[in-house]
Design a protein around this nucleic acid. Sequence first.
DNA 1: AAGTGGTCTAGACCACTTG
DNA 2: AAGTGGTCTAGACCACTTG
Lengths: 246, 246
Amino acid sequence: MPAEAAKLPQFALIKQYIQNHIDSGVWPAGTRTPSENELCSMFSVSRMTARRALQELADQGLLLRTPGLGTFVAEIEPLVPSLEIPNIVDQAINAGSYSNRVLFLSAITPSSEIAELLHRATDREIYQATVVHLDKEQPIQWQTIYVNPDLVPAFLKQNYAKVTPDAYMDWIAPVTVSDHQLEAVLPTAVQRRELGLTAEGSAVCMQLNRRCWSKQTVSSYSQLIHPASHFRLGPDLSLSPYRDSQ
Amino acid sequence: MPAEAAKLPQFALIKQYIQNHIDSGVWPAGTRTPSENELCSMFSVSRMTARRALQELADQGLLLRTPGLGTFVAEIEPLVPSLEIPNIVDQAINAGSYSNRVLFLSAITPSSEIAELLHRATDREIYQATVVHLDKEQPIQWQTIYVNPDLVPAFLKQNYAKVTPDAYMDWIAPVTVSDHQLEAVLPTAVQRRELGLTAEGSAVCMQLNRRCWSKQTVSSYSQLIHPASHFRLGPDLSLSPYRDSQ
DNA sequence: AAGTGGTCTAGACCACTTG
DNA sequence: AAGTGGTCTAGACCACTTG
């Protein structure tokens, strides 16, 4: 028995054996792997141990198992690439360089579009706030947030100089799910002024539309508008995605 | 024994029991759950069955287990929101309404920036293609792709009217990982003309920078420029994220 | 009828933590 | 010393598929 490999438990050794055959192409997608009983005798192991190896690889999506038929190597799924959405306001708060300007805070009668997004009738009031968020005195985001007053009745009575609308909302009605949309836009004249955008060429903005849910009820809908110069998504491409693994 | 709940296996019943106590707030984060042995006697079940319930919930991230200490309810992780990146060229191809115009196809001496992204020296040639992709005769994407000739030596000899550069690349050097960056830009005069953007206001574009890797080697770097009117990320917000679960 | 995976049992030994 | 989770065994019954 080689001394090097003695540390891993037996189910992990069986997993390695199977993974090697898949990665090296010896077992292409669709190949039947050894059955639980076959692995038992191959590795001199009980069925529960052989089963654990197969089951964990199946949970990872590498194998497909069918009672009565066997275990098969799964097709590689194309893996839809995705981008994480940074929260530049939270980053500024954590850095201690955050401030803001509240431009509007009031109850309003929603447009039919906003009412529909909040799942409310157009004849029922909702709350709206418009805030410009700043990092080191530089405007980084224009936020217009529409709030469901049923979930956050005291929304209009808060002082948003220290606690942002998002932070207060998350305290009263924690976000359980959120939807996001992203598009490139040209800001309005008011937005350009408040965001400090003067030159024509630098006036391009990224608009993020975000709807938040709290326990299966829509709690808010926000339009977040960022100067393109302050909002890029994705990693620094000078770094290798393999930096962790080798 | 109630007839309704008779269908679920015992480990699933124990999982339900634990999940209910977490979801309802009876066991907040940090609470110690019953141990494997305690669940054994509570549910008149063997330790392997009680263990399975705890282990599967731990695999889901709901529980944390420590040998010698016990099993504890995990903190809810904030869950970074992310957006899937649509491939509008593939969508057009699948819809059967795809065509393109190849503007440039040649070996070039790379700029230092491009050379660095491809992990190559500036004095070694690379391949470049510039293609405008169309859907139903409408321009939807400007692509400038820089290719590592080591991996795809015959890149310049292909006819890209039928098979796109990306499709050919994926055939020769399948993409194992890809990096993406996204920003809002104003297109150049040439890009505006080729993309059919005339009015000033509609000239905003989304630029996606994508670097593809094949077996831990950079195979290509692409700049993908889309008219903002044809490129929005995220779901239709008129749909509920709960559509599947209720 | 023989083989497959899904569930389950009643034991065992281990390294680890706590009093 | 008593309890915890991690690994493992050698059996069992089941519903399911195949020849």
